[in-house]
C-alpha cells in the first residue's frame, strides 16, 4: 500500500494542497515576483471576482457543459440507446461502430478532424452549399457551437454505453404490462422506462459533467479560446493566465475555482454510486 500512498500524496494531494497555498501568493513565472514570491492574502480572489474575463469564462464553461454534456451527450446517448433497443445486430453495429470510433480517437485527433470538418473549405460547408445553403467560417462565427458539437461527437459513446447497460437490466414485464394497459410509447418511456434508469441517468450526468468541465485540448486546438475570448472556458483562461501571462498565482486561483466546482460534482458522484459499492 505504501508506494501508492506515497505517489498519491506527492503527486496528487501535493499539487492540490500546493494550489491552495499558491493561490494566496503573487507567484509568477518571470519578473521580480518569480524570485521573491510573497503572500498576498485574498488579493487573487478579490481580483477574480472583479475580472470580467473570469465571469466570461464561467458563463462559457456553464454553456459548454450544459450544451455538450448535459443536453448533447446525455440526450443523444439516451436517445441512441433507446432507439437501439430491439434493433437487429446489423443496425446496432452500424451505429455503435462510428459512435465508438469517435470516442476511441485521441482528443487531439478529434480536434483536428473537427477543425477540418468546420473549416471554411471543409466538408460541412461543401455539403451546405451543395444543397443551396450558405456556408460560413464556423470556428470564427460560432466558436462555442463548434466546440460543443465536437465534444458531443467525441463523448456521446460514453453515455450511450451507460444507457445501453442500464436498459439491458430493465425487466421487460413492467413495460409489457403498461403496454397491455394501453399506455402509449411516450407514456411508457416517461413513466416506466426513465424512472427505472433514474440512477444511471444521475451517475452519467455527474460523470460527463466532470469530464467536460476539464476539457482543454479540444478547445485549445480548435479555437484556442478565440476569436478574442469568445470560447475561452475556465481551463483555457487558467492556462493563458499562468503560462502566457506568467501569473502563476492568479492562474492557480482560477484553477482552484475549477477544482472547487469539480469537487462539488465529485461529492455528488460519491453519493450517487459510492454507497453500495464500497
Amino acid at each position: 500500500m505504501a508506494p501508492a500512498v506515497v505517489l498519491l500524496a506527492v503527486f496528487f494531494a501535493g499539487p492540490v494542497v500546493w494550489s491552495v497555498l499558491l493561490s494566496f501568493t503573487d507567484a509568477s513565472l518571470t519578473g521580480s515576483a518569480a524570485a521573491q514570491t510573497s503572500f498576498v492574502g485574498l488579493d487573487n480572489f478579490a481580483r477574480l471576482l472583479q475580472d470580467p474575463a473570469v465571469w466570461n469564462a464561467v458563463v462559457l464553461t456553464v454553456v459548454f457543459v450544459l450544451g455538450s454534456a448535459v443536453v448533447g451527450q446525455n440526450g443523444l446517448g439516451l436517445a441512441l440507446a433507446l432507439m437501439l433497443r430491439g434493433r437487429g445486430t446489423a443496425v446496432r453495429s452500424l451505429v455503435t461502430l462510428p459512435v465508438m470510433a469517435a470516442y476511441v480517437v485521441p482528443e487531439i485527433v478529434a480536434a483536428f478532424v473537427w477543425y477540418a470538418f468546420l473549416n471554411p473549405e471543409g466538408t460541412l460547408n461543401t455539403a451546405l452549399t451543395s444543397v443551396g445553403l450558405p456556408g460560413q467560417s464556423w470556428l470564427f462565427t460560432l466558436p462555442v457551437l463548434a466546440v460543443v458539437l465536437a465534444n458531443i461527437w467525441r463523448g456521446t459513446a460514453f453515455s450511450m454505453l451507460i444507457y445501453l447497460a442500464a436498459l439491458s437490466q430493465v425487466p421487460s414485464d413492467v413495460d409489457e404490462q403498461a403496454q397491455i394497459d394501453g399506455a402509449s410509447g411516450w407514456k411508457r418511456l416517461r413513466f416506466v422506462t426513465i424512472p427505472m434508469i433514474r440512477r444511471a441517468i444521475g451517475t452519467n450526468l455527474v460523470l460527463i459533467t466532470l469530464q467536460t468541465l476539464q476539457v482543454f485540448t479540444l478547445i485549445f486546438v480548435m479555437t484556442a479560446g478565440g476569436p478574442g475570448d469568445a470560447s475561452e472556458t475556465l481551463p483555457l483562461l487558467m492556462y493563458e493566465q499562468a503560462f502566457q501571462y506568467a501569473a502563476l498565482g492568479y492562474g492557480t486561483a482560477i484553477a482552484l475555482v475549477l477544482l472547487a466546482i469539480g469537487a462539488v460534482f465529485s461529492l455528488g458522484y460519491i453519493r450517487a454510486i459510492g454507497k453500495e459499492d464500497i
Binding site: L8, F11, F12, P15, V16, W18, S19, L22, A27, V206, L207, L210, L213, Q214, V215, F216, P235, M238, Y239, A242, F243, L248, G251, T252, A255, L256, L258, L259, I261, G262, A263, F265, S266, L267, Y269, I270, I273, G274, I278
Partner: peptide
C-alpha cells in the same frame, strides 16, 4: 473515489510550479 472525479486540468498549474 473522490480523487477520480477531480478535474486534473486544474492541477496542472500548481504541478508545474
Amino acid at each position: 473515489l473522490f480523487a477520480t472525479g477531480l478535474p486534473l486540468t486544474a492541477v496542472m498549474v500548481p504541478v508545474y510550479s
